[in-house]
Amino acid sequence: MTGEGLTESCPGRCPRLCRSSVALLVIFLSSCSGSQSALDPAGPEASRVAHLFFVMLFGGAVIWVAVVAALIYASRKKNAHSEESAGRVILWCGAILPSAILCALLSYGMWLMPAIRPWVPDDQPVRRIEVTGEQFWWRVRYLDETGKTLFETANEVRIPVGEPTHFALKAADVIHSFWVPSLGGKMDMIPGRTNPLALQADREGIYNGVCAEFCGESHALMAFRVRAVAAADYEAWLSERSAETRTNGLADAEGLAVFLKNGCGACHAISGTAANGRIGPDLTAFGERNTLAAGTLPHTAEDIARFIADPAKIKPGVRMPHFGMLQEADIQRMAAFLKELK
């Protein structure tokens, strides 16, 4: 059946196809924006990565159009070209032009590299944060100028807007990769090594980060948030969190007692309490976080209770044992207590 025959037999087909194509295009294009898109940059490094992508896209499109045009020309050309002119085409289009294009692309990539991956010397006074990838969450330590830990948190990183933050990236078990597409390229986290990365956000907002290296069963459930705030707000938050003891949320003495009674403090720490475990995520300001279980669940008391009862059901391979054997009232009490930790 010819194309014309198809159109005649299904008169509504073409408009439907067009509408579907436009709808699909809109869906694809809308996925280019948002808090986890390298095509919607929020910092200088990500801007350069996006620029590189668009240059490559444009160049690739031009070459593709040229190849298709040559193919159409060749299929319609009746008389064959001479062997000599065909040889010239092979020499120029098959060897010289590709070599020149590759040379230009390599030079362009090399020229961009220092700006894409800015280097912060160890002695330069910048904000320093140590992030350690663990199966399947992120241990975050805020450091002072001397490299001493001010305090620890997990699965959420807060940075000041308009200045570079230096990340020291480590891994505790297997290889992970730290990637915040809106702020920059990814950097591997390798056990036994400390890899440096400097990121800067130019506007306030919450940006999603992911683990970009397969690290086990729940690799796809190992996300985090980067919260970029004004420098003054960051400074105030840093001072407040650096204080040794905290009282917010700890008014719920009953919730804390249930938490301690069930041994949660052996793995988790809450500043200012007897809970000082270092195996699992620090829960000191747990209620401030936007998500639960490293970006897996919304941060609600119901979801906290679900996670306490059976973490492996939500996050396969997680090291936290299930606490479904506890009384439902205790689980609910702990979830409410944790939700209020701010």
Partner: peptide, 21 residues
């Protein structure tokens, strides 16, 4: 010819990379 191009490609980073990281 191939080797000449390859040597040029290997040497290009020398122009742009100015320090150890």
């Amino acid at each position: 010819g191939l080797s000449f191009v390859a040597v040029v490609y290997v040497a290009i980073p020398l122009i742009f990379i100015a320090e150890c990281q």
